[in-house]
């Protein structure tokens, strides 16, 4: 009997969803978000937004993301559009400088709520 091995798990490229409190879901992303990984981000965002109770929020913790290209940014724009449709808040937090710079180049830094720290994101999520 052969043993089927799935894709290798890459500990540096993770997307984890957890509940922070009754109204807040946290999606923690790490590694590089490029065109190969953007579909995973899309799925995770949809899952996270789907788990949020009414009037709640999703915090996308990007502190572990070392690289993001335009496909990653586009995926987050889609997530923002979906969250608005579902009346769910969406806050990005803890962007590394070089990731944040992509949002500024695309002039999306004023479109997304972006918090410097996770604690600030929790505050922002509570006020959404």
């Amino acid at each position: 009997m052969s043993v089927h091995e799935g894709p290798a798990q890459d500990p540096e490229n993770r997307m984890d969803i957890r509940s922070h409190d009754q109204k807040t879901i946290v999606l923690s992303v790490s590694g590089e978000v490029d065109i190969v990984r953007s579909p995973d981000l899309q799925t995770s965002l949809q899952d996270a937004i789907g788990k949020v109770p009414g009037k709640g929020s999703v915090i996308v913790d990007l502190s572990g993301v070392s690289y993001m290209d335009s496909s990653g940014v586009a995926t987050l724009v889609r997530g923002l559009q979906l969250s608005r449709k579902k009346d769910v808040g969406l806050v990005l937090c803890s962007l590394q400088d070089r990731v944040r710079s992509i949002f500024e180049i695309a002039r999306l830094d004023t479109v997304f709520p972006i918090a410097e720290t996770f604690d600030e994101a929790v505050e922002a999520a509570a006020s959404v």
């Binding site: 724009v77 180049i105 002039r107």
Partner: peptide, 13 residues
């Protein structure tokens, strides 16, 4: 860039 939508950012970047 005033048109907020996914995609089409690559050349600008």
């Amino acid at each position: 860039l005033d048109d907020i939508r996914p995609g089409g950012l690559g050349v600008h970047i």
